[in-house]
Design a protein around this nucleic acid. Structure first.
Lengths: 218, 218
DNA sequence: GTGAGCCTTCAGCAAACCCTCAGGTGACTG
DNA sequence: CAGTCACCTGAGGGTTTGCTGAAGGCTCAC
């Protein structure tokens, strides 16, 4: 369930989550959120701290479900302090990758085994979401936050062709204004760090995009 | 459903889609689009971003159907930013092949199994639309974007004779000014890359066109 | 304040690609 | 058989696309 008063954020999140296979309900304010949550008992609520009517914390108290908070990066100290006390949260502007990673982490914690494990593997390339570690051929690799998010996106979608626009939409914050050139830079960084041995896993499809996959025989 | 204020684009798209077996409705502006969509609930709407009355995004919000946007290649930043919100789009000038491929992809995603799978096969020649891969006799072949579009057009119309003019109209952008000589060049490229073994699949019909088909036994 | 790591832009280079053209080849026709 | 026509294909030039090194600005920790 997604609760935010800005329609654009609501649409962005619900579309992205539906595409990933979740069933999504939405609410535009605290009142509606409590009502819908009572009827539908969602597995998780993504909740903006700042709502027009009720305070986010108030809503969280009245809902019997795990909560992932959304908050402005420039939030006041007491808000952040409140969040630190046991709540998970993501700051706006966020990237879809970030939110989905957090959602999966929360579900994994609360629902135990209903969710895929946190280790992704393609050929001899491994990524551990919880530990935030990446290994290629038994050797650990250090990645910057953006590099990690990009590689994670590639691995979740292993075998699928991803356009640069698509990558930009998922890995970069939704308010990023630049062009797709930055994706090329980061693909280049990733290649140097995790794809400098055979078999090559990141492949360029000229004027289409990139794909991460084990090359087929022949 | 096709929504564009330029009659030539509308006719081009609707004729091509009807020929491919779709039922097509059209609208010339946003107002009409919303009305028609309400009455007919189309499976998909092909929608120009730039309409005389309403903004394309406004229309998309009011229509309860998947949307494929059309946009000028040199669109301004904010237009593109809107497209970041998860929408599929094709840039003008497009080729009919491109639009139809995108339409099928969207329908496949939203309607699940109501649409033919993404793998085409003729004899030992295989083409996977999603993975953008082509195989001949178990061996993978790399194709440029135009080569891929051309082969795709051949395979969708396997067994049917295609004139060079027809091919030009479907595979090349609608504003292409050159002559049919390119088609000969690209057929030649394709033959070298995917038709260099028996049985030959691409056949020339002198002063008529080409056809891709498995030759009959004997 | 200072430095390190990180993010983004940019420009130069390299490769891939698209299209044109022209000479050659094979088929049909008178 | 010779002439004509359609087609095939190699060569080449202009353009597009992608890769990467370098540089500037930013944040954050010390």
């Amino acid at each position: 369930m997604v609760v935010d008063d800005e329609p654009s954020i609501r649409d962005l999140l619900s579309a992205s989550l539906r595409f990933s296979g979740f069933e999504v309900l939405t609410a535009a304010d605290g009142q509606e959120a409590v009502e819908v949550a009572e009827r539908a008992s969602p597995d998780l609520v993504v909740l903006d701290v700042m709502l027009p009517d009720l305070d986010g914390f108030e809503v969280a108290k009245r809902i019997d479900a795990p909560v992932l908070f959304l908050t402005a990066r420039e939030a006041t100290e007491d808000k952040i302090a409140g969040l630190r006390l046991g709540y998970d949260y993501v700051t706006k502007p966020f990237s879809l990758e970030e939110v989905q990673a957090r959602i999966r982490a929360v579900l994994r914690r609360t629902r135990g085994e209903g969710v895929p494990a946190s280790k992704l593997k393609v050929a001899d390339l491994e990524l551990d979401e919880d530990a935030r570690e990446v290994w290629r051929g038994g050797r650990q690799v250090r990645l910057s936050p953006t590099e990690f998010k990009l590689l994670h996106y590639f691995m979740v979608n292993a075998g699928r062709v991803l356009s640069k626009a698509q990558i930009l939409d998922h890995v970069w914050n939704y308010d990023f204004g630049g062009d797709a050139g930055v994706v090329e830079s980061y693909v280049s960084y990733l290649r140097r760090k995790v794809d400098d041995v055979e078999p090559r896993l990141i492949h360029t499809l000229r004027s289409v995009g990139y794909v991460l996959r084990e090359p087929p025989a022949g």
